[in-house]
Protein backbone atom coordinates (compact mmCIF):
# COMPACT_ATOMS: atom_id res chain seq x y z
CA UNK A 1 0.00 0.00 0.00
CA UNK A 2 1.40 3.35 -0.94
CA UNK A 3 1.36 6.29 1.42
CA UNK A 4 -0.81 8.61 -0.73
CA UNK A 5 -3.42 5.91 -1.11
CA UNK A 6 -3.42 5.27 2.64
CA UNK A 7 -3.85 8.98 3.36
CA UNK A 8 -6.68 9.29 0.86
CA UNK A 9 -8.37 6.16 2.18
CA UNK A 10 -8.14 7.64 5.67
CA UNK A 11 -9.68 10.90 4.45
CA UNK A 12 -12.50 9.12 2.61
CA UNK A 13 -13.40 6.66 5.36
CA UNK A 14 -12.83 9.13 8.19
CA UNK A 15 -14.98 11.71 6.42
CA UNK A 16 -17.69 9.15 5.69
CA UNK A 17 -17.79 7.83 9.26
CA UNK A 18 -17.86 11.36 10.63
CA UNK A 19 -20.60 12.27 8.15
CA UNK A 20 -22.95 9.51 9.24
CA UNK A 21 -22.17 9.79 12.95
CA UNK A 22 -21.87 13.55 13.54
CA UNK A 23 -24.39 15.03 15.97
CA UNK A 24 -24.51 18.32 14.13
CA UNK A 25 -26.18 17.85 10.76
CA UNK A 26 -24.35 20.68 9.06
CA UNK A 27 -21.09 19.05 10.09
CA UNK A 28 -22.41 15.88 8.47
CA UNK A 29 -22.82 17.71 5.18
CA UNK A 30 -19.33 19.22 5.40
CA UNK A 31 -17.74 15.86 6.26
CA UNK A 32 -19.56 14.34 3.29
CA UNK A 33 -17.99 17.00 1.07
CA UNK A 34 -14.52 16.24 2.48
CA UNK A 35 -15.02 12.53 1.91
CA UNK A 36 -16.13 13.08 -1.68
CA UNK A 37 -13.15 15.34 -2.39
CA UNK A 38 -10.94 12.48 -1.21
CA UNK A 39 -12.77 10.15 -3.56
CA UNK A 40 -12.25 12.58 -6.45
CA UNK A 41 -8.51 12.55 -5.69
CA UNK A 42 -8.57 8.75 -5.86
CA UNK A 43 -10.24 9.07 -9.27
CA UNK A 44 -7.40 11.36 -10.35
CA UNK A 45 -4.85 8.80 -9.18
CA UNK A 46 -6.68 6.15 -11.19
CA UNK A 47 -6.09 8.25 -14.31
CA UNK A 48 -9.69 9.44 -14.70
CA UNK A 49 -8.95 13.17 -14.65
CA UNK A 50 -12.23 14.04 -16.34
CA UNK A 51 -14.36 12.08 -13.90
CA UNK A 52 -12.45 13.35 -10.88
CA UNK A 53 -13.23 16.94 -11.85
CA UNK A 54 -16.84 16.05 -12.69
CA UNK A 55 -17.09 14.39 -9.29
CA UNK A 56 -16.08 17.59 -7.48
CA UNK A 57 -18.19 19.74 -9.80
CA UNK A 58 -21.34 17.69 -9.20
CA UNK A 59 -20.93 16.41 -5.66
CA UNK A 60 -19.09 19.18 -3.84
CA UNK A 61 -20.40 22.01 -5.99
CA UNK A 62 -24.01 20.89 -6.22
CA UNK A 63 -25.06 17.91 -4.11
CA UNK A 64 -23.23 18.83 -0.89
CA UNK A 65 -24.37 22.44 -1.20
CA UNK A 66 -27.96 21.28 -1.80
CA UNK A 67 -27.75 19.04 1.24
CA UNK A 68 -26.55 21.76 3.61
CA UNK A 69 -29.10 24.12 2.05
CA UNK A 70 -31.88 21.62 2.74
CA UNK A 71 -30.60 21.15 6.31
CA UNK A 72 -30.89 24.88 6.85
CA UNK A 73 -34.30 25.10 5.17
CA UNK A 74 -35.74 22.36 7.34
CA UNK A 75 -34.55 24.47 10.28
CA UNK A 76 -33.29 21.89 12.65
CA UNK A 77 -29.64 22.59 12.20
CA UNK A 78 -29.56 23.72 15.83
CA UNK A 79 -31.55 21.01 17.60
CA UNK A 80 -29.15 18.20 18.41
CA UNK A 81 -31.17 17.07 21.46
CA UNK A 82 -32.08 13.58 20.31
CA UNK A 83 -30.72 10.13 20.14
CA UNK A 84 -28.73 10.12 16.97
CA UNK A 85 -29.44 6.52 16.06
CA UNK A 86 -32.58 4.55 15.51
CA UNK A 87 -31.39 1.02 16.05
CA UNK A 88 -27.66 1.56 16.21
CA UNK A 89 -26.50 -1.93 17.12
CA UNK A 90 -28.41 -3.93 14.54
CA UNK A 91 -27.73 -1.40 11.77
CA UNK A 92 -24.00 -1.36 12.44
CA UNK A 93 -23.97 -5.15 12.69
CA UNK A 94 -25.66 -5.49 9.31
CA UNK A 95 -23.17 -3.06 7.76
CA UNK A 96 -20.23 -4.90 9.34
CA UNK A 97 -21.54 -8.23 8.12
CA UNK A 98 -21.88 -6.83 4.61
CA UNK A 99 -18.35 -5.47 4.74
CA UNK A 100 -17.03 -8.82 5.98
CA UNK A 101 -18.80 -10.60 3.13
CA UNK A 102 -17.49 -8.20 0.49
CA UNK A 103 -13.95 -8.24 1.90
CA UNK A 104 -14.01 -12.04 2.04
CA UNK A 105 -14.99 -12.17 -1.61
CA UNK A 106 -12.35 -9.64 -2.63
CA UNK A 107 -9.57 -11.34 -0.67
CA UNK A 108 -10.35 -14.80 -1.99
CA UNK A 109 -10.57 -13.63 -5.58
CA UNK A 110 -7.37 -13.75 -7.60
CA UNK A 111 -7.34 -11.21 -10.44
CA UNK A 112 -4.88 -11.34 -13.26
CA UNK A 113 -1.84 -9.06 -13.28
CA UNK A 114 -2.83 -5.41 -13.64
CA UNK A 115 -1.87 -3.58 -16.84
CA UNK A 116 1.37 -1.69 -16.43
CA UNK A 117 0.40 1.58 -18.08
CA UNK A 118 -2.35 3.88 -16.88
CA UNK A 119 -4.99 3.72 -19.60
CA UNK A 120 -5.77 7.02 -21.24
CA UNK A 121 -9.17 8.63 -20.76
CA UNK A 122 -9.55 10.81 -23.86
CA UNK A 123 -12.58 13.04 -23.49
CA UNK A 124 -13.22 12.92 -27.24
CA UNK A 125 -13.40 9.11 -27.21
CA UNK A 126 -15.71 9.27 -24.21
CA UNK A 127 -18.02 11.64 -26.08
CA UNK A 128 -17.86 9.49 -29.22
CA UNK A 129 -18.95 6.39 -27.36
CA UNK A 130 -21.60 8.36 -25.51
CA UNK A 131 -23.12 9.60 -28.76
CA UNK A 132 -22.68 6.41 -30.80
CA UNK A 133 -23.22 3.35 -28.61
CA UNK A 134 -24.97 4.94 -25.66
CA UNK A 135 -27.35 7.36 -27.35
CA UNK A 136 -30.46 5.82 -25.85
CA UNK A 137 -29.17 5.81 -22.25
CA UNK A 138 -27.93 9.36 -22.80
CA UNK A 139 -31.38 10.46 -23.93
CA UNK A 140 -32.91 8.63 -21.00
CA UNK A 141 -30.58 10.44 -18.58
CA UNK A 142 -31.40 13.75 -20.22
CA UNK A 143 -35.10 13.03 -19.80
CA UNK A 144 -34.50 11.96 -16.21
CA UNK A 145 -32.61 15.15 -15.39
CA UNK A 146 -35.28 17.33 -17.00
CA UNK A 147 -38.00 15.45 -15.14
CA UNK A 148 -36.03 15.80 -11.90
CA UNK A 149 -35.57 19.54 -12.46
CA UNK A 150 -39.29 20.12 -13.07
CA UNK A 151 -40.35 17.60 -10.45
CA UNK A 152 -38.13 19.11 -7.76
CA UNK A 153 -39.50 22.57 -8.51
CA UNK A 154 -43.11 21.33 -8.40
CA UNK A 155 -42.67 19.31 -5.21
CA UNK A 156 -40.96 22.14 -3.38
CA UNK A 157 -43.55 24.73 -4.41
CA UNK A 158 -45.48 26.00 -1.41
CA UNK A 159 -49.04 24.62 -1.30
CA UNK A 160 -51.48 27.18 -2.72
CA UNK A 161 -53.51 28.91 -0.06
CA UNK A 162 -57.06 30.00 -0.83
CA UNK A 163 -57.23 33.70 -1.45
CA UNK A 164 -53.47 34.02 -1.83
CA UNK A 165 -52.19 35.63 -5.03
CA UNK A 166 -51.00 33.31 -7.76
CA UNK A 167 -47.45 32.09 -7.06
CA UNK A 168 -46.24 33.41 -10.41
CA UNK A 169 -47.41 36.93 -9.70
CA UNK A 170 -44.94 39.13 -7.85
CA UNK A 171 -46.44 41.00 -4.94
CA UNK A 172 -46.92 44.65 -5.42
Amino acid sequence: MTLPFALLAGLILGGAIAAVSARNRVHSGLFLAASLVGLALVFLRLGAEFLGFIQILVYVGAVAVLIVFAILLTRDADSPRERIANAPVSGILIALALFALLAWGVLLWNPGPPPAAIPALPVKALGDRLLRDYVLPLQAVGLLLTAALIGAAVIALPPPRPGAPDAGEPKR
Partner: peptide, 23 residues
Protein backbone atom coordinates in the same frame (compact mmCIF):
# COMPACT_ATOMS: atom_id res chain seq x y z
CA UNK B 1 -7.20 -3.42 -7.54
CA UNK B 2 -7.97 -5.31 -4.34
CA UNK B 3 -7.07 -2.27 -2.23
CA UNK B 4 -9.48 -0.11 -4.17
CA UNK B 5 -12.21 -2.75 -3.94
CA UNK B 6 -11.71 -3.01 -0.17
CA UNK B 7 -11.90 0.76 0.17
CA UNK B 8 -15.11 0.76 -1.88
CA UNK B 9 -16.57 -2.05 0.26
CA UNK B 10 -15.74 -0.16 3.46
CA UNK B 11 -17.26 3.05 2.07
CA UNK B 12 -20.38 1.16 1.05
CA UNK B 13 -20.67 -0.38 4.53
CA UNK B 14 -20.31 3.03 6.19
CA UNK B 15 -23.01 4.44 3.91
CA UNK B 16 -25.28 1.49 4.65
CA UNK B 17 -24.77 1.87 8.39
CA UNK B 18 -25.65 5.55 8.09
CA UNK B 19 -28.75 4.91 6.01
CA UNK B 20 -29.95 2.19 8.41
CA UNK B 21 -29.31 3.89 11.73
CA UNK B 22 -29.88 7.64 11.34
CA UNK B 23 -33.33 9.02 11.95
Amino acid sequence: LKLHLLLAAALFAVGLAGALTRR
